[in-house]
Design a protein around this nucleic acid. Structure first.
Lengths: 201, 201, 201, 201
DNA sequence: TATGAATGAGAGTTCATTCAT
DNA sequence: GATGAATGAACTCTCATTCAT
């Protein structure tokens, strides 16, 4: 059981550092955040960071991934909480997806900033790029599937390119996140979710 | 004539450096690009950069602004080239706007990368933030006005919040740009433009 | 005991760097000394300097202050070592002050150079200026007080302006230091001290 | 006569540049003054400076020498203006020398700053060092001669070391200049001159 | 002669990472 | 494991001087 104890401690410290890093990255951006800042925020020594994370990039990446997982969970939860009638409707499920995203962004706007910077960094950091692509693709597939089902159920008029429509919706969601990142509170997520889910043909 | 010649030379050299900088920023990102890289790419001495630009930030900002201006021109030209019947239709004008943006992104995908990074940097660099905000707001106003006119002409069903709808469309456009930046050629801009302009209620 | 050991090490390294810096400043002057020169002289890496000193200015200032403090101590010691009869005489105390200054200059002519440059820099560097002024004023007050006491005891004929006389004596001392800095060994400090203290009416 | 005309123009421009340089050096110090600053102050192009002066050091040196010459002239004039009775007295001539120095310092405190910095730089710049030494020695000889004459005439009690006394007086004068440089107006030059010339045994 | 753009060798300073303790 | 001093490459920006025009 000692390994277990160790693991708990290890995981807890990792988590602790991660939280400190998120705060720093969100406040100052990746480039302007020094490892020392993170260490100070986490109240540990600079060198100890390297016990838990291989590098600054690794730290960033871990945050990036964690956000994606948490968002996926939020979305799933939101969908699960739908009333049975609504859960049967792809449009309602899409709505739930966007609402959950909005809640996530609002509830953890700090991490959202990190995410936004991640997308920009992606282009120059192969390691990050892979993750961004994967996440992107997965999310796109989910939306596309919803649309496909919605058409099958007659909720959406048939159109040739399901994927394109999904891409536009995904693009809109990301664009809104970017806007929120730039000017938090600039619009109502709930109204945007409603518009996106129910008034896009 | 000499001052004129000088003027030309000055502007030409500025332009030359700018092109070199765009290339570097697009390839390596802002943070990883050293002034020396730009100087080498432009085939001049490091110090000479500072004759034309006050700082690395200035260089970046100039590129950022130039892109915005060029895009505005492209859009205007695209709208002007519409047949009279179409030009009278806000929906067609919106379509032209998106098409022009797509062409711009495709034609100068290199600069587009720089733009994308600019949006991410904006949050941490007040100088850049101001420009991004201004550009954002101006573009939003344009779209909003198109929608307002479209509704007045019965092209769109009336909805309470013109601004929100404009924001969503703008978000979608930016999201698509970001996707293109990530995976160029991932979708068809023209089809996306058509879908965005004509099938969004 | 460990913290104490660390403390000692820290102070020792600081002292070590300081000595290296003094040597460099004295040999090349402040402006021509590069941080790298100091690091090389101290046999450490350039970056390590910044663990002990915030900047090149800080380094200089520290030396400047240290010299002043050490001089004050030397003077005090010299006065304390006077025979009781002499210690009662302000003129002898003034003599001791000048002698101590001379010894200090001769014993650490290297640092003296740094001091001289400090006075010249003072006019253009507010931070240094403050320290120079303060030191100057303190030293002046000390001399003035000696003269005042000397007059009270009838060692000096009464004159209206004690401060002016003190200023002249101080000026002479500084002027002699400057000469020594220019051509070390150009005169005898002890004779100069005697002349200044005992033959100035 | 053309060479003559040229010479006039040349000398005038030199003078013009010199004045600009003095102003800059006095305001910012030697190290912080850029050649461009001087060119701007003189309202000519940077490159033109090198037509008149070989280097920044040369510029400085020229100013330094000019000050010394002008001071010598001022002193000579002051002595020449003494009433015949006074002119016969070495003490009065010494007084005139100090008064003239004071007037010079006050009247051209701007150049005085440059002089002060020159003495500090002297130690690290052989070219400057030579000039400083020469000037110093000449001035010292003059004072020494005055004292020697004064003793011969019975104005000063005989003392073994004329040179030392001269050195102290010279040191005092320089020290006072340094003080004035630091805090202009901190004392009365005329009173200091009187004290130095008439109450020092 | 005058110009001022170009040069390019540094300057001080920062900071991710390492490693002896 | 934890520490934090040390490292040293890299960074942006400066500026005396040169030289083609």
């Amino acid at each position: 059981m000692m390994p277990r104890l160790k693991e708990v401690t290890y995981a807890a410290r990792r988590e602790h550092i991660l939280r400190a890093a998120v705060e720093c990255f969100a406040r100052q951006g990746f480039a302007r955040t020094r490892m020392e800042d993170i260490a100070t925020a986490a109240d540990i020594a600079k060198g100890a960071l390297y016990t838990y994370f291989a590098s600054k990039d690794d730290l960033f990446l871990t945050i990036y991934e964690a956000w994606g997982c948490a968002l996926d969970e939020s979305i799933q939860k939101q969908i699960d909480q739908l009333a049975p009638t609504e859960r049967a409707s792809p449009r309602h499920r899409l709505h739930a997806l966007i609402v959950a995203t909005g809640r996530h962004v609002q509830g953890d706007s700090v991490t959202c900033r990190v995410l936004m910077e991640g997308r920009a960094l992606a282009a120059y950091t192969p390691t990050i790029a892979r993750h961004v692509h994967a996440q992107q693709e997965q999310s796109l597939a989910q939306i596309e599937e919803l649309i496909r089902q919605g058409r099958a159920q007659g909720e959406w008029p048939p159109q040739t390119d399901c994927r394109l429509q999904a891409q536009i919706i995904q693009a809109a969601i990301h664009g809104l996140m970017a806007q929120w990142h730039l000017i938090p509170g600039n619009f109502s997520w709930d109204e945007a979710a409603y518009t996106l889910a129910f008034t896009i043909v």
